[in-house]
Deep mutational scan, measured.
Amino acid sequence: ENVVSAPMPGKVLRVLVRVGDRVRVGQGLLVLEAMKMENEIPSPRDGVVKRILVKEGEIVDTGQPKIELG
């Protein structure tokens, strides 16, 4: 899985990584606000952040790609 998608609709509060960052499985990639709760979205695997496809403040839909890992 190279693309991390939104598990639920919500607002991107914070992006916790930058392009080029090495990430580990379970590491937080971003914080999504859904139903007035903050949810940290974890990396599904070890890898390197290739692209960030969302911006802080953006509203995302379920299944929308957010971060691409290499």
Results as ranks from 00 to 15, higher is better:
65 P>E: 06
31 V>L: 08
49 V>F: 00
61 D>L: 13
10 G>K: 02
18 R>S: 12
67 I>G: 01
61 D>A: 14
68 E>H: 11
65 P>C: 07
17 V>W: 00
27 Q>K: 04
40 E>D: 06
22 R>T: 11
15 V>D: 02
47 G>Q: 03
30 L>E: 00
40 E>T: 15
64 Q>F: 06
13 L>A: 05
19 V>Y: 03
29 L>N: 00
4 V>D: 03
39 N>I: 15
38 E>R: 10
49 V>N: 01
33 E>A: 09
70 G>D: 14
34 A>F: 14
65 P>K: 08
34 A>V: 14
32 L>D: 00
16 L>H: 04
37 M>P: 03
34 A>I: 14
22 R>L: 12
43 S>P: 02
20 G>N: 07
45 R>G: 06
25 V>G: 07
15 V>W: 08
41 I>S: 01
33 E>G: 09
60 V>G: 01
54 V>K: 00
44 P>N: 05
69 L>F: 09
62 T>S: 13
47 G>W: 04
47 G>E: 03
52 I>T: 01
46 D>K: 06
61 D>V: 15
70 G>T: 13
53 L>R: 04
34 A>H: 14
4 V>A: 05
36 K>T: 11
50 K>T: 13
67 I>W: 03
69 L>A: 03
59 I>C: 14
37 M>D: 07
10 G>N: 02
33 E>C: 15
52 I>R: 01
3 V>H: 09
34 A>K: 05
44 P>D: 06
55 K>Y: 11
50 K>H: 10
4 V>G: 04
40 E>S: 09
57 G>D: 06
61 D>K: 15
1 E>I: 15
5 S>D: 06
3 V>N: 06
12 V>D: 00
53 L>K: 03
22 R>E: 10
64 Q>M: 08
24 R>F: 12
23 V>Q: 01
62 T>M: 13
42 P>S: 11
54 V>I: 10
36 K>C: 15
6 A>S: 13
48 V>S: 05
14 R>W: 06
22 R>V: 13
26 G>C: 09
45 R>H: 10
61 D>Q: 14
60 V>K: 01
33 E>N: 05
70 G>N: 11
68 E>F: 12
68 E>W: 13
25 V>R: 14
1 E>H: 13
52 I>Y: 03
15 V>P: 01
28 G>N: 09
21 D>F: 07
51 R>E: 07
57 G>S: 04
30 L>A: 04
58 E>D: 14
68 E>N: 04
59 I>F: 14
49 V>I: 12
64 Q>R: 07
25 V>K: 15
16 L>N: 04
7 P>T: 13
68 E>A: 09
19 V>S: 04
13 L>C: 07
26 G>K: 04
40 E>Q: 10
41 I>T: 03
60 V>S: 03
35 M>K: 10
6 A>C: 13
56 E>C: 09
37 M>F: 09
45 R>E: 05
49 V>A: 02
54 V>Q: 01
35 M>L: 12
57 G>T: 04
7 P>R: 11
34 A>C: 14
69 L>K: 02
40 E>G: 04
2 N>T: 15
38 E>P: 09
13 L>F: 03
59 I>A: 08
23 V>N: 02
9 P>T: 10
43 S>W: 01
35 M>R: 11
58 E>T: 07
42 P>A: 12
24 R>W: 10
48 V>W: 15
10 G>H: 03
56 E>V: 14
1 E>T: 14
13 L>P: 00
13 L>N: 04
2 N>A: 11
49 V>S: 00
62 T>W: 10
33 E>P: 00
54 V>P: 00
70 G>V: 14
66 K>Y: 15
11 K>F: 07
2 N>K: 09
18 R>H: 11
67 I>C: 06
15 V>E: 01
2 N>Q: 11
1 E>A: 13
50 K>V: 14
44 P>W: 07
32 L>K: 00
32 L>H: 01
32 L>C: 09
3 V>W: 15
53 L>I: 07
37 M>E: 11
44 P>E: 05
12 V>M: 00
43 S>D: 02
56 E>Q: 10
7 P>N: 12
28 G>P: 15
27 Q>I: 05
1 E>K: 13
69 L>N: 01
70 G>A: 14
39 N>M: 15
67 I>R: 01
55 K>I: 11
